[in-house]
Design a protein around this nucleic acid. Structure first.
Length: 108
DNA sequence: AGAGCACTGATCC
DNA sequence: GGATCAGTGCTCT
């Protein structure tokens, strides 16, 4: 797979449970501004269960879209799953978003 | 070479 | 405040 994907997955695996990250953060950590490229990596997601793609949300605090549908029943399940991890939601958004947001470490 | 993407920021209304 | 347009960088066909 492309090195770019590996970077995304590796960073994503660094995200602990009970926390989430955003496409913007991932892209910025990778040193790019193409947030959409992150989405493509998620869509491929060869490590589905290993890669917590559901922990990746939009910078707005909303989950955005996961299963190809921006608003579907699937995303609601993901939301519940995140809640079980300790993440709280304020309606359709994440509570304590900046606190729930995981920060990546540039120095590896 | 061309189109696309699970986004984001800016502009228009 | 909500919806649409444009931009972005990388990938696939």
């Amino acid at each position: 797979m492309p090195a770019f994907y590996q970077k995304v997955y590796r960073l994503l695996k660094k995200v602990p449970a009970g926390k989430v990250t955003t496409y913007k953060a991932l892209a910025h950590t990778l040193g790019i501004r193409a947030y959409q490229a992150i989405g493509q990596a998620m869509r491929n997601n060869p490590y589905a269960p290993r890669i917590p793609c559901h922990r990746v949300i939009k910078s707005d605090g909303t989950l955005g879209g996961f299963m190809g549908k921006t608003r579907g029943p699937a995303i609601e399940k993901k939301k519940k799953m995140l809640e079980k991890e300790g993440i709280k939601f304020a309606g359709d958004k994440v509570q304590n978003f900046p606190k729930t947001l995981h920060k990546f470490n540039n120095n590896t």
